[in-house]
Structures are given as C-alpha cells and as structure tokens.
Amino acid sequence: MSTSHADTGAADTDTRATDSEFIQRRRTEATALESELWDVLDEIPDPHIPVSLVEMAMIYDVTERDGQVTVEMSYPCMGCPAYGFIENDIKSGLRVVDGVAAVDIDVVWDPVWTKDMLTSDVREKMRNSGISL
C-alpha cells in the first residue's frame, strides 16, 4: 500500500461505475437454489434504511455446494453497530430454506462498498423515504 490513504482519504473512483454490474453479474450466474437464496436475502431489511441487504449492494455473492452456503458480503461502514444482528438475520433466514445445511458468512472488503453501487431505483426508494445518499 502507499502511504497516501490517510493523507488524501481518496477512494479509487475509476472502478466505481462497474461495481454495481459486478454484483449483478454474480447474481445472474446463480443456480436455481442460489437464486432462491438471493431472493430470501432480498427480503432481509437493512436495520437502518428501508431497503434490503441486496438492494443496499451489501451481498456480493451467494454460493451453494452440497448444502453448504457461503454468503460473501461487505458493509458500508466497518464499525457497523448492527453487524451481529445482520449476520444473525442472514443465517436464520437461509438455514430454513430446503437444501441448506449450513451457512457461512465471508465478510470481504474488495471491492470496497460505495454508494455508487446503488441502482437508481434504490436511490429513488430511499429518497422517497427521506434519505439521501
């Protein structure tokens, strides 16, 4: 790493435009069961904002193999006070789906979450709720 992060606070803006596509691409590669799991995650609300974890672009990938599910996700804020609640919601939501034996959550920071990952529909939804991001 360079020494410049703390000095500039600058995030890499060049890659942001494609991040949303990155997540959408992962979802389109899903199997039938994985797709069902994505739908379940799309029902879990963000504790702070009236949109789902999927709409918040926090879910990066969902993979299933022999009943073992791995959710790859990130958080907008590393110090998220609802961290444990969100992980519990994910695990309890997915475990009851037929074909799921166990759920692992893999928190990743690459790519780093940015508000540019939100689609315009989600932004509109948030604006209508009085939240500007």
Binding site: M1, H5, A6, M78, V108, W109, V112
Partner: peptide
Amino acid sequence: QGMLTKMGE
C-alpha cells in the same frame, strides 16, 4: 488491501 483501504478512509 481492500480492508486496509476501507480503514484508511
């Protein structure tokens, strides 16, 4: 590196 970038922010 991704995690460290986030922490740097």
